[in-house]
Simulated scan of single mutants.
Amino acid sequence: MRADIRHLTEYRYAEPAWDSFNEVRLSPEVSARQDLRSFHLVVRPEASLVTTHRDYFGSLIHHVHVHERHQVLRIEAQALVDTRPLAPLEAAPFSALDNLRGEFTEFLVSSPRVPSGRWPQVFGVQGPQPHEDLSAFMVGLTTQLHRQFSYSPGATSVGTTLEQFARDQRGVCQDYTHAMLGICRTLGIPARYVSGYLYSGGEMIGADATHAWIEALIPGHGWIGFDPTNDMLAGEKHIKIGHGRDYPDVSPVRGTYYGGGGEATLNVEVRVYADPPGGSSG
């Protein structure tokens, strides 16, 4: 599938701000499952300096500095991405992870937003036996959490803790993902947080902003994406930006500024088209 992505982040300030420094993670990754045909970052007012580097997990970060005074800051990312469907997910015994866990400790231990806890018990999940199929367990867990949680925008915020979400189990894709990470890691399944986009055609949840899902290590397959918000594997309609331990590792835009007269008003608009508007490009 070819996806044309338009992601606009707009900050409005009550008073002029200046020396705005922003860290932008919006460039989709290049991998065996997706190709990045083009990426453009447009900043208004025009940035006085834009530099890039890759973070510890391999995500491309743009550092944007706007020196002049401004009351509106617009950061628009435009990307054209080709994705490929997943290969069929075959059986893999849970015990096959025994020889792999030492290589992926960072995705098994606690992280700031996914602390250690009895998360399988908290969310009513029974872990697999060593001989049981890990692939089937992960598919079943995705379905269980999708049915158990209630998708409720506004019920949580980017700062909501996993403990808070566990109390009423109402939230958004970020909360679903942190909960599934906590369950997997407690059970000894290496799992990481993925930030990206979702093409839905109006059919799926979470397509009006950056979307979140998990990737779990499945022996014989590598890292496979599972989307509990939509009860599905992450396939060609999921466009990945990057991954980390939890949300703060891959937050799309964050930064600092001087002035502004208090907290800025934030507006985010995301559009993902299955075909580029106006015909093919790239």
Results as ranks from 00 to 15, higher is better:
E23S: 15
H63Q: 02
R69T: 06
P45T: 00
L26R: 00
L8E: 13
N22P: 03
S20Q: 11
T9N: 10
L8P: 03
Y13V: 11
R12G: 00
S59V: 07
P45Q: 04
A14P: 02
T52L: 13
Q34D: 07
V50T: 14
S31A: 02
H62A: 13
R33C: 04
V66N: 00
L49P: 06
V30W: 01
A17G: 12
F57H: 11
V64I: 12
H65F: 14
S48T: 06
Y56I: 15
R37T: 10
H65M: 08
F57L: 05
Y13N: 08
T52N: 14
R44K: 12
Y11W: 15
L60I: 07
S20F: 05
V43G: 09
L26A: 05
I61M: 04
T9P: 07
E10D: 09
R37K: 12
V66Q: 02
T9V: 13
E29A: 11
E29I: 13
A17Q: 02
H40Q: 13
H63E: 03
P28F: 13
E46Y: 08
L8H: 06
L60T: 11
Y11F: 15
S20A: 14
Y13M: 09
F21P: 00
H40L: 09
H67C: 08
F57S: 06
Y11E: 04
S38G: 02
E10C: 12
V64E: 09
H53M: 07
R25F: 05
H67A: 15
E29S: 08
V42L: 09
P16K: 03
A14T: 07
L60M: 11
G58P: 06
H67L: 14
S31L: 02
E68Y: 01
H40N: 12
S48Q: 02
Q34E: 10
E15L: 01
H63M: 01
S20I: 15
L41W: 01
F39P: 01
E15R: 03
T52K: 11
H65C: 08
V30S: 07
F39M: 03
F57E: 05
V66S: 08
L36D: 05
A17W: 00
E46A: 15
Y13F: 15
V30M: 03
H67F: 12
V30L: 05
V24A: 12
V64K: 06
R33V: 02
A32C: 01
D55N: 08
V50C: 09
S27L: 05
S20V: 14
L49A: 10
R33I: 03
D19Q: 12
A17F: 03
S31K: 02
E10G: 06
D55S: 12
L49T: 10
E23V: 15
L41V: 00
W18M: 06
V66D: 01
H63R: 02
E23C: 09
V42K: 01
L8T: 13
A47Y: 08
V42I: 14
S38V: 05
S38H: 11
L8N: 06
R37W: 09
S48R: 02
E10Q: 15
G58Y: 14
R54K: 00
R37N: 10
P16A: 04
V64H: 04
A17I: 00
H53V: 04
Y56S: 12
A47D: 10
H62G: 04
Q34M: 12
T52Y: 12
A47R: 09
A47C: 06
D19I: 05
R37S: 10
R25W: 06
F57R: 04
H67E: 14
R33M: 08
N22S: 05
S48H: 01
